[in-house]
Design a protein around this nucleic acid. Structure first.
Lengths: 156, 156
DNA sequence: GTATTCACTGGGCAATGTGTTCAGTCGTCC
DNA sequence: GGACGACTGAACACATTGCCCAGTGAATAC
């Protein structure tokens, strides 16, 4: 679970240029190919690297509107709400949280008007008491991991 | 920008088994290799597929605590706050939003105690008036894209 | 001090996949 | 009818992969 400097460099290199192969990585990093392969295998079995799935842009798919919805759930209905939200394709992720709301979910929609449909779809379920939505305007920091990996590689 | 059925199948297959190569995909999908290659090139130049970077699990990196913070920004300080937050590795993403807050960011930390440090780091900046944090307990729906891709492939 | 373990190196091998190109087919649009 | 675009099936040289091995060095255990 601890990440050393070489692990960090492997992940960062992979994040910056996903197309490089193991051989090319070993050349860039100045280590033997077997080392890179062993490190990669370890990182994956550790769960540090979950996979290499394609990063799909919802906007390019026709869903340019993103929003975050905070949901308040009726007592004991949590499981039902989770199951319900899992069936809505526009719900990209769902978290249960502490704080004023009970759940936080990320939504996408084809337009602001379409967002109304999505919200109705989400909220139109018995266990949800109240929903408060924030529409995303800009995304100054897109989901990233490199700085954290670099910190983990140095600090540990 | 429109996604047809074959595009959808390519993305879904790739999301489920990222390791398959172009040749194997063409076998699975029952089309020629050149077709898959052409589609993939198109999807990438379209921006539908942004890349194939590694999906790193912050928890496995030693950051098991996730939180969402809603920030209120002092008038006209937006750019400074963005620049500030971009320098904090524990800020995994940042959005500007409509609604009660002005910004929403995703944070990670090594522990609940460490989260305090991160929040201080985030909030300890002049332009931020107020911050409200929700700690993530469960993640019933991890960030996903497959259902949306399937819908986009069918509907369009 | 010696033995063991572990990670890394550098090399070699067969097998596979890649990038690329080509000609031929099919359906659609003008 | 002709042109265009997408797909097919095949070919080619080339690079990369997965796998194996023996040897080195450092750290650990006895």
């Amino acid at each position: 679970m601890a990440i050393d400097h070489l692990d960090g460099r492997i992940i960062v290199l992979l994040a910056r240029e996903p197309r490089v192969g193991v051989l090319e990585m070993s050349r860039r990093l100045g280590v033997a190919r077997g080392t890179v392969q062993a490190r990669l295998d370890r990182l994956q079995s550790n769960g540090v690297i979950r996979g290499f799935g394609p990063q799909v842009d919802p906007a390019a798919l026709g869903y340019p509107v993103t929003a975050f919805a905070t949901l308040q759930i009726r007592q004991g209905q949590g499981a039902d709400v989770r199951a319900h939200l899992a069936t809505v394709p526009e719900v990209l992720e769902l978290h249960t949280t502490t704080g004023t709301g009970d759940m936080l979910c990320r939504l996408v929609a084809r337009s602001n008007a379409d967002l109304q449909r999505v919200i109705d779809l989400v909220v139109g379920f018995d266990g949800i008491v109240r929903a408060s939505t924030a529409i995303v305007m800009e995304n100054p920091v897109p989901l990233r991991i490199i700085p954290l990996v670099e910190q983990a590689a140095l600090g540990e």
